[in-house]
């Protein structure tokens, strides 16, 4: 079989390109769900841990306990392989669930949250202490100062690192294939199993991941440029 025939078989025959596209759809859906979970979870964890680190005077036992728990969460998630986490979620915790895609998205989100929390925490800490002092000195409370002054500056500082994390997240969605999630790589595997040809299906999905990441990167670049507005001299 010629290369052209192999390509036709891998991509066009029986409308197989539809399977890839459906895979892309699932990949994007999983990415968006995981991204939302990751950002919300990560930001919340970062804010709580920063509040704990910045407290003054007597320590709040509730905050102390929560901080300890969150510290364990971050340590465990960052200290174990993504693949193992996926398998534990799919085969132990949600063993009875058949919705592998959603279980995968949830796992990725929880995983991403741990990394995002450390990125955001670093960003919050990188904002000059004088900014918090200025906000508080004007009579704004801690939450107001965080919301209007600290967090916007922190987000701008961490955007490149967050972008990097999102790209990793997008590509890591391919792992949910191995717990039965029907995303892009899963589509390629199905076609490989039917045609006994590996090269084109794999090259096609590689190209598709690459295009997705490039679109993503471009969007982030535009956002960064918008946020840099206040730096212009």
């Amino acid at each position: 079989m010629s290369a052209a025939e192999k390509f036709t078989q891998a991509f066009l025959y029986n409308d197989r390109w539809m399977q890839y596209l459906r895979g892309v759809g699932t990949t994007l859906l999983v990415t968006v769900i995981a991204l939302l979970i990751g950002v919300v979870l990560g930001t919340a964890v970062a804010l709580l841990r920063t509040a704990h680190d910045q407290r003054r005077g007597k320590s709040n036992p509730f905050l102390w306990l929560l901080n300890g728990f969150l510290h364990i969460y971050v340590t465990v998630i960052r200290g174990t392989p993504m693949m193992v986490q996926l398998l534990i979620m799919a085969m132990v915790i949600f063993a009875s669930s058949r919705n592998f895609t959603l279980v995968g998205a949830l796992t990725l989100g929880i995983n991403s949250g741990a990394y995002v929390s450390e990125i955001v925490r670093g960003g919050l800490m990188s904002v000059d202490i004088g900014q918090m002092e200025a906000g508080r000195s004007l009579g704004l409370n801690y939450m107001q100062t965080m919301r209007f002054v600290i967090i916007p500056q922190a987000i701008k500082a961490v955007l490149p690192a967050l972008g990097n994390e999102f790209i990793i997240l997008l590509k890591d969605t391919s792992l949910i294939t191995f717990i039965g999630g029907k995303e892009l790589l899963y589509a390629a595997q199905g076609i490989m199993n039917r045609t006994y040809e590996a090269m084109f299906p794999l090259l096609i999905v590689a190209a598709m991941y690459l295009i997705l990441v490039m679109i993503f990167t471009r969007m982030l670049g535009i956002l960064e440029r918008k946020l840099r507005q206040s730096d212009r001299r």
């Binding site: 900014q131 002092e133 200025a134 000195s137 209007f148 916007p152 500056q153 206040s230 730096d231």
Partner: peptide, 14 residues
Amino acid sequence: MGMVFQHFNLFPNM
């Protein structure tokens, strides 16, 4: 009680 700092501490994001 208004406070003015050595390093101004204006909010650069506004």
